[in-house]
Design a protein around this nucleic acid. Sequence first.
DNA 1: CAGGATCCCTACGGATACTG
DNA 2: CAGTATCCGTAGGGATCCTG
Lengths: 101, 101
Amino acid sequence: MALSKNARKVLKVLARRGAPEVLFALGRGPARFSDLQAHLHLSPRTLAERLREYHVLGLVVRRAFSEVPPRVEYTLTARGKRVLDFLQVLEEILDSEEVKR
Amino acid sequence: MALSKNARKVLKVLARRGAPEVLFALGRGPARFSDLQAHLHLSPRTLAERLREYHVLGLVVRRAFSEVPPRVEYTLTARGKRVLDFLQVLEEILDSEEVKR
DNA sequence: CAGGATCCCTACGGATACTG
DNA sequence: CAGTATCCGTAGGGATCCTG
């Protein structure tokens, strides 16, 4: 009948600034904070926020290495990959309609 | 690689207040403005905005009858139905993951 | 009935500066 | 390097009042 809370939350995060881009980037493999920031033109504030949200939702894993200089790696979880595939399904849906016109 | 503009727009609208609810409600058949408002606890401002956005995206058709009192009916398009199905897929994805834990 | 216009409050996100 | 803290502008949405 209605949409589940989890789905709503994921939807909300996906609509935010840079959210899909981060997911697509991580879909190409694990990445570090600065890599993401450089490729996605996101302010550190926003990128950190997106990553934290994804982590809370269980879409992304964060691994910090105790080194100098510090290094942190972000990786998609299985759940994260599913959501990424899901986004591509949305594109297919909309594009197939586009062709019909 | 990245997400299409159309997909981004749809995503953005779907994350707004009451957006999924409106879609689910219309999935049960055509409805009038006041019906939707009563069932969904949305302010008229917000409901009108959602419906206009859906209309622009081609997810909803608006039919106004020149009567007194005026009557307007909203209906899902084929594209709208696909997006609704898509939302249910999202739930399935997240729930199946939930079970795994 | 089906909204538009207005006022107002809140949350998001950019820019910049600063730490562990 | 990988963030957090602060300041601040902009957009979303509630409440209320008004109209075709």
